[in-house]
Structure formats: structure tokens, C-alpha cells
Write a protein that binds this DNA or RNA. Structure first.
Lengths: 147, 147
DNA sequence: TTTGCTGCAAATAGTTTGCAGAGAC
DNA sequence: GTCTCTGCAAACTATTTGCAGCAAA
């Protein structure tokens, strides 16, 4: 996908424009976030980079995610159990479908929630800024396993 | 509202049926959960009870919430920042509207997400078991404060 | 050369757990 | 009288932070 390359360039550009340095560690993190294959966790990112960068520190992953989040270039999916998954490929809020067995996260193609959001806004008198919609279930792969 | 009384009775009945004892601390927690006015946090519940029960322990609140959750009689709204809010008045999944300033949580009247859920299920081949929908914004009270 | 970044280790904070005594039934 | 529950304090764990040295620009 060219898509990943575009996202990588956008994030790098934004980092430069804001005066941040491009360290090898940072580039490695941005590379993974731009792809965000399977919506990686901090640990996923850390272990993936650790293979080529044995001195890589978890703190560096956390710090860079905080930075890139502050630039609005990664969507953080935090869960109540403390786990976090990231989407730097599509950083705008969108629904997710999560397999509670294998933890796979999929982006469904859905009509946007614009109408529902307007309905909620007019009914509650809130100014709605953001939303989060997650569906939890079991993916077909896990359903197939009779184990 | 008679509603709160009914919920209280249902939760108490379920606790008894499962062989759990009704201690004063537990009754106090259930009373608050049955009402769930404003979707209380663990701290809210703890401090409210502490007034009449000076020895009340946070651990007891946590343990009882875990218990009542396991009976399916309270909906836990966990947030990525670690905060938790509870709804023991309506323990089935439903949308919430959250003020990011005053932390007020409101239940909007919305058409159910059944159709969207079916759409997601057929598109992704997941068996959907559950969902969560939160809208984040600013309530009219907080908008009015020009401070 | 300057300034921000990294790695390490220690600190943090909400939640959970072990244990001994108290209390519901 | 039995067995669960409670309160306390310690343990746990993901994330954050202080600091000294390192490296991008």
C-alpha cells in the first residue's frame, strides 16, 4: 500500500515542522505507526523495534507516542484493562471491531455516525466533540477453532 | 423513582440466590448502585458511604463491584485514563454522553444500534457480543460558564 | 554548538490480594 | 458454629519522570 508511505511522510513532515528531531528510534516508531498493521500495542512496537535496536527503551516508545498523539497523528484506543492499541494509519475516530479471543482489531466500513451524533447533540444539548464506538465479539477464525 | 427500589430488590435477590451475605457495607453499596445517580465512580461510592461508615475500606467497594459485575447487575464504564463510572440502574450496554469538563454522564434516548450491529457482523464475519458507544463533548452548563 | 532525545532506574497511582479478626446466617 | 466478608497494609503493574550522557541539526 502506498497509503503507509503517505502516512509516514505526513507524520515525519509534521514532526519536522514542529521542530522535533528525527532520531533512528523515532523513525522506527513512526514507520510502525504509519502502517499500524493490526493496531499495534506499545509492547508490539517495542518488541518489533528491539530486534534491530537492542538498547531500545519502553520509555522512548511511550514518549514518542505521547508526542505523536499531541500532533493528532495517531489514534489511541485505550481500554479499561489498561491495554492500549494504536492506529497511525487512520487517526480520526472510527468504529472498531475487536475479537475478545485473539485481540484482533478490524476497521469496519460503516456509514458515519453523523446523524446519530446530531440526534444526540440536539437531545442532550451537548456540544459533541468526539466519539468512540467499539464492537466486541469473536472473529470467524476463532469461531472456527473448536478447541 | 420506584425504579431505584426495583433495581435494589433485583440485585439483593440475586446476591441472596447466589449465597452471598448481606452485610451493611454491601447493602450501602447496592443502594448507591441501584440509583447510580450521575453514574458514580468508585471514589464517589466510597466517600458517600464513608460518612456513615467511617471504617469503610476502598477495597470493600472494589470487591463488591467485582461481585455485582460478575452477576451482570452493574455496567462498568471504564476509561483509558483509569477512571471508572458505574451504572447499576441500567446494566445493559447503552450509549453515553460525557462532558469532558464536569465529567457529567448522561444517557441519551437513541434508536438502538441493532441495525448497525448487524451490518458490522455481516461485513466483518464477527459474532458480535457487545458494544460500547460514548460521545464526548461539553454540556450546556459548562458551555454557559464563560470562565 | 545548541538543544532535544534516549536509556536507565526510580517514582507514581489505581486496583488487587493475603491475612487475621468480625459478623451474617 | 461455619464460612464469608471486611479492613488494613503490602503487592502489583502499566505508565511517567529525573537525570546524565548522547546525537541531530
Amino acid at each position: 500500500m502506498e497509503d503507509h508511505k503517505k502516512r509516514f511522510d505526513i507524520i515525519i513532515r509534521k514532526l519536522k515542522d514542529h521542530g522535533h528531531k528525527l532520531t533512528p528510534q523515532r523513525l522506527a516508531i513512526v514507520t510502525i505507526l504509519a502502517r499500524s498493521e493490526g493496531h499495534p500495542s506499545v509492547e508490539d512496537i517495542f518488541h518489533q523495534i528491539k530486534k534491530k535496536f537492542p538498547t531500545m527503551s519502553l520509555a522512548t516508545v511511550y514518549r514518542n507516542i505521547v508526542l505523536i498523539k499531541s500532533l493528532g497523528e495517531v489514534l489511541e484506543l485505550g481500554f479499561p484493562d489498561g491495554s492500549n492499541r494504536y492506529d497511525g494509519n487512520n487517526p480520526t475516530p472510527h468504529p472498531h471491531v475487536i475479537c475478545i479471543k485473539c485481540k484482533k482489531i478490524v476497521d469496519p466500513d460503516l456509514d458515519s455516525l453523523d446523524e446519530i451524533q446530531k440526534e444526540v447533540a440536539s437531545e442532550t444539548n451537548f456540544t459533541i466533540l468526539n466519539h468512540r464506538l467499539d464492537f466486541f465479539g469473536i472473529c470467524s477464525d476463532c469461531m472456527a477453532e473448536k478447541v
